[in-house]
Simulated assay, not measured.
Amino acid sequence: MPSSTAQAQYLLRQPNLPLASSWSPIDADELVEIPLLGRVSAGMPIEACLDAGSIEVPTRMVRRNTYALRVHGNSMIDCNIFDGDVIIIERRESAENGETAVVMINDQEVTLKKFYIEKSGVRLQPANEEMAPIYLRNSDIQVLGLVMGVVRQPDLAA
């Protein structure tokens, strides 16, 4: 069942800018339905749990392998991603340093963090100075996708 778009704000990521300042509001002229596959933690990783739903987003936000996840938590607030937002994800298997990615840990838990490759492995960095980074071995993580957009629905905030 598509969600209401009456008060939704659509933010599209602009390339080559820091994520905190790269969001550009776009109009909802032409909407298309994409899968809303569940939720992702912006905080401590949570168990991966698929949910079958959908959300309508502007066609400009959709690429080949696009899906959406609802954000639960406050670890990405300095990147302008808040609890209750729906993030638009482009399915990818890798991420560059500094990209905001949905990452699966040990084939069980999923989290949303900034991704950094380091000598000893991978650092998953929150965009909230009150939260600590998560350090893991490369073999412990799998990148599921990169954040390309945000749908903010104030009336549905978690």
Rank of each mutant, 00 (worst) to 15 (best):
P15L: 02
Q9Y: 00
N106A: 12
E109Q: 15
R91S: 11
E130R: 07
P154R: 07
E33R: 14
L69K: 09
T59F: 04
D85R: 03
E118G: 11
P18W: 02
T66R: 11
E99R: 14
A8Q: 07
S22M: 03
R70C: 08
L136M: 11
A48Y: 10
E96A: 15
I141C: 11
I141K: 11
L112A: 12
A8D: 11
V147Q: 06
I117E: 10
A52D: 12
D78W: 00
R39L: 03
V147I: 11
K119C: 00
P15V: 02
V147G: 04
C79H: 08
V110W: 07
Y116G: 08
T111G: 10
I87V: 15
A127F: 00
L36H: 04
N65Y: 15
L50P: 05
E129A: 12
P126G: 12
D83H: 09
N138A: 08
M44I: 11
D27R: 15
V150M: 04
D155I: 00
S3H: 14
S54V: 08
R152N: 15
E99F: 01
I34G: 08
N138C: 02
D29V: 06
D155N: 04
T111N: 10
V103H: 12
I141Y: 05
V150W: 00
V122C: 08
D107F: 04
D29H: 12
P2V: 09
E30S: 15
I81M: 09
R152A: 11
